[in-house]
């Protein structure tokens, strides 16, 4: 990359910065609300991995679907879901996307084509291919972004899905967010071959390893994958090399890795710092401009937290609704 001028406009770069920052601040706030007992159950934060979803969303168009695992807050914010509705779902309130009935791991937006939020590791992979199947069945050129982690990459249903997606040339981008830990198990302790992106080779699905901490690298790899899918050439695998700063969930002390390891990534590879650096050195923004953005994001997040705290618990009648359509 040295010396090469990145192919990105000032507006785009600012947009990525804004979106990544929103995810990070939102997640920090969620962590805080969890600590205060306002959020219950499992809560998996996306801090550190922001560039993945923001870079990929830059390639999405109207009608494209996305689906992911339980670590889903970032994906929802990146596809344009309202932070207030997401946060209120975390607090289990009426104003949440699922009216308090899904929680952190199970949130959806038909409007934004966000299909969850899936609590079962790997289950989103065939479902994501099914969304792609529907696109092909209907003859449109939409693409399904199907996200899963390095842990899910060892699930059998992933390979059943690779087989069918390749066989039927389904327009699905399989995005493997490799944060190197399947909960507390390091990748080398759970995975026989480290290069997960090559796992499609047996099915003739092209795959690529991508620096998932670099939003532009993600975006560009995504563009290639999406073009492949839209052209009717079938699925594409992108393995995003990324890192989560927090524990697996809020209740994870993360004893399986050293504090130094985490610190090193934060200092040397932080995705947001990277964009911030580009903005400043490219003279696209001043420190003051960025401070103004920070302030704006903080306000959005505070408003979301306030909404999520003020919104009432669901009416007791909600217990019995939405079992059947």
């Amino acid at each position: 990359m040295a010396g090469k001028k990145p192919n990105v406009s000032k507006e785009e770069l600012l947009e990525y910065y804004r979106e990544m920052l929103l995810i990070r601040r939102f997640e920090e706030k969620a962590g805080q609300l969890y600590g205060m007992g306002l959020i219950g159950g499992f809560c998996h934060l996306y801090i550190g991995q922001e560039a993945v979803v923001v870079g990929l969303e830059a390639n999405a168009k109207e009608g494209d679907e996305r689906i992911t695992s339980y670590r889903d807050h970032g994906h929802m914010l990146a596809c344009g879901m309202d932070p207030k509705g997401v946060m209120a779902e975390l607090t289990g309130r009426e104003g949440g996307y699922s009216r308090g009935k899904g929680g952190s791991m199970h949130m959806f937006s038909k409007e934004k084509e966000f299909y969850g939020g899936n609590g079962i590791v790997g289950a989103q992979v065939p479902i994501g291919a099914g969304l792609a199947f529907a696109n092909k069945y209907r003859g449109n050129d939409n693409v399904s972004f199907t996200y899963f982690g390095d842990g899910a990459a060892n699930q059998g249903q992933v390979y059943e899905t690779f087989n069918m997606a390749a066989l039927w040339k389904l327009p699905v981008v399989f995005v493997i967010e490799n944060n190197h830990y399947a909960m507390g198990t390091a990748q080398e302790r759970s995975t026989s071959t480290p290069a997960i992106y090559t796992r499609g080779e047996a099915f003739e699905i092209p795959g690529e390893a991508v620096d998932g901490m670099d939003v532009l690298a993600v975006r560009d790899a995504g563009a290639k994958a999406v073009a492949h899918c839209r052209a009717g050439k079938g699925p594409y695998i992108l393995e995003m090399n990324t890192y989560r700063y927090r524990g697996h969930s809020m209740s994870d002390p993360a004893k399986y890795r050293t504090r130094e390891e985490v610190q090193k990534v934060k200092e040397e590879h932080d995705a947001i710092d990277h964009v911030r650096e580009m903005l400043l050195t490219g003279k696209h923004a001043s420190e003051d401009d960025l401070k103004a953005i920070d302030k704006e994001i903080k306000a959005i997040v505070s408003e979301a937290a306030q909404f999520a705290t003020d919104s009432p618990e669901p009416d007791v009648s909600e217990l019995w609704t939405d079992v059947y359509a």
């Binding site: 699922s98 969850g116 939405d322």
Partner: peptide, 9 residues
């Protein structure tokens, strides 16, 4: 999913 999505899906 219908229940978990608050009736959306």
């Amino acid at each position: 999913t219908l229940y978990m999505s608050g009736g959306q899906m």
